[in-house]
């Protein structure tokens, strides 16, 4: 592969990323709702439950802040990926797929585009961190890194699923049988300790998102089960697997 070819492919990655970023900038209502929803979780749900519950001497609202960040990454990333079903229906992708750029580059552009969207949303949510007194602002870069890698994994997963589905009917299924279980079993809303029934602990530990929540919670609140490097390794491995799987399915997509 010559240098010229590599430059062309990189330009292709950039082109697809650029398109996604333009779309992101235009869909202001989507950005607003993607910020408002987690804030409602934090302030309406968090205050309600927090009135009678606190975890490890931390106010419940603060405790679930890392979990809600992970939730945002989960929903934002998977739905971004799944959105290609819609792109394909509208034939927007057709003109891109016929360009002299490899499918892998297009896939990479899409993944980076999705990660950018999600990361920017997370950055906005970090601006509200001062409302949660227990959150350590110096942990934010570490948390951001982990959330970014998680986003690579989940956008890839969304694109992989989106490549398989021909219609939007699968959305509901994916949402009920994949996204919600991943969220509830991640320890985003409750601590993973010996009070949990064994079967639940088992499922939670199998869920890669648990390691995101744990790592972010460790960085921001110093409450964690696993050391940060374990979280980082698990999440990175998850991202690598999903990226490879996603790029294969995307390349085979008709």
């Amino acid at each position: 592969m010559g240098e010229k070819r590599i430059r062309r492919e990189l330009m292709g990655v950039y082109a697809v990323w650029w398109r996604e970023f333009k779309v992101f900038q235009r869909e202001k209502s989507r950005i607003v709702s993607s910020i408002v929803q987690p804030l409602m979780w934090l302030f309406l749900f968090g205050s309600g439950v927090g009135a009678s519950v606190s975890v490890s001497n931390i106010n419940y609202q603060d405790y679930i802040y890392p979990g809600i960040l992970a939730m945002m990454v989960l929903f934002g990333s998977v739905f971004f990926g799944l959105y290609i079903v819609w792109d394909r229906k509208l034939d927007v992708l057709k003109a891109i797929l016929v360009a002299p750029v490899s499918r892998l580059s297009i896939f990479m552009g899409k993944v980076l585009g999705g990660c950018t969207d999600v990361t920017l949303q997370i950055v906005i949510l970090f601006c509200f961190a001062f409302l949660f007194p227990s959150v350590n602002p110096w942990g934010i870069p570490q948390a951001l890194l982990l959330l970014f890698i998680t986003s690579i994994a989940l956008v890839s997963m969304g694109l992989a699923l989106g490549s398989l589905f021909e219609s939007l009917e699968g959305f509901q299924l994916i949402s009920s049988f994949l996204i919600f279980p991943l969220f509830f079993l991640s320890g985003a809303l409750f601590p993973v300790d010996d009070k949990l029934p064994g079967w639940l602990t088992g499922l939670v530990k199998l869920n890669p998102l648990t390691y995101t929540v744990d790592g972010v919670r460790g960085a921001l609140l110093h409450v964690n089960i696993f050391p940060f490097y374990v979280d980082l390794i698990v999440v990175t491995f998850f991202a690598a697997v999903m990226f490879v799987l996603g790029s294969i399915l995307f390349s085979r997509m008709k």
């Binding site: 062309r8 330009m11 292709g12 950039y14 398109r19 333009k22 235009r26 927007v92 003109a95």
Partner: peptide, 20 residues
Amino acid sequence: TLDTVLTGRENLELHARLYG
């Protein structure tokens, strides 16, 4: 197969980049 979320010029810009 136009990208209707982009402007006319942006559609061409996207394409120009994809074609190097």
